[in-house]
């Protein structure tokens, strides 16, 4: 089996960061994926230009997954192309593999990165930024990227060991369990954030009763806005409504 050289591998690894560089509605990450895997294809099919062209065309087909977990598909894609070039795998398997995996990996990645890790890093950064903005920014970037880059690295390496290894890695990594834990952390930190801000308002009150009333109003407001979000009201609509209220206040 013609294994790709470490240089080509590193080149694919670097290019994965641009997988959304030409994001479009028809093919989504198709151009980005083809671009990322290209150095490996060049090497695998060197001296066989027709097959090389065919393999690149395979990867310009529709593709979309979570950008971080795209690393797993890229790794396993390189592996599959290697064995397709050696005649051990039907080239049609490459496309079927990508189509089969992208939705699931998209769901795992969206839940973990967008639905839990990012909110956690954001709210941690925002709270620390109350003490000092630069410390907050550093916390946000470090909290998010330590995990982000590690998942990219491990996922790509697991993919390079083949489909089966990739599944085992995904199971071991158990991102859906970690999603629950990050959501928990995000919720606790989010509560703290809300407490700090309502507390700052309550300081100006004179009595404890006043403070408790403010706390209850704050908690009720959060519960209400959360309900609106659940009903798919967008944050923009809520802010636009508040802006309208503000303008009416100014009008008086």
């Amino acid at each position: 089996m013609p294994a790709v050289s470490p240089e080509a591998r590193r080149s694919v690894w670097r290019r994965q960061f641009l997988i959304q560089g030409c994001w479009n509605y028809e093919g989504m990450q198709n151009v980005g994926f083809a671009y990322a895997i290209l150095p490996a294809l060049r090497e695998i099919y060197s001296g066989r230009p027709e097959e090389e062209l065919k393999s690149v065309k395979r990867h310009i087909e529709f593709f979309n997954t979570h950008p971080v977990l795209g690393a797993v598909v890229l790794g396993a894609g390189v592996r599959l192309e290697e064995s397709a070039a050696a005649g051990e795998t039907d080239p049609a398997r490459v496309g079927a593999f990508k189509m089969g995996w992208m939705g699931s990996l998209g769901a795992i990645g969206d839940s973990f990165f967008w639905g839990s890790l990012r909110p956690m890093a954001s709210v941690a950064g925002a709270i620390i930024a109350l003490v000092h903005p630069l410390a907050g920014i550093a916390a946000l970037l470090v909290l998010y990227n330590l995990t982000h880059l590690a998942v990219r690295r491990r996922g790509f390496a697991a993919g390079m060991r083949g489909e089966q290894a990739a599944i085992e890695w995904l199971k071991r990594e158990s991102l859906n369990v970690k999603t629950g834990n990050r959501k928990l952390a995000a919720a606790v930190l989010g509560g703290a954030y809300a407490g700090i801000f309502t507390g700052r308002t309550a300081i100006f009150g004179e009595t404890g009763l006043h403070a408790i009333a403010l706390f209850l109003i704050g908690a009720a407001a959060i519960q209400f806005v959360t309900m609106m979000f659940r009903k798919a009201v967008s944050p923009s609509e809520i802010l636009a409504f508040l802006l309208l209220v503000g303008v009416l206040i100014l009008w008086q």
Partner: peptide, 14 residues
């Protein structure tokens, strides 16, 4: 396809 199923199962939240 049990392999694809097992990947998809990992995508389902707890």
């Amino acid at each position: 396809n049990p392999m694809l199923r097992s990947v998809m199962e990992l995508a389902v939240p707890v």
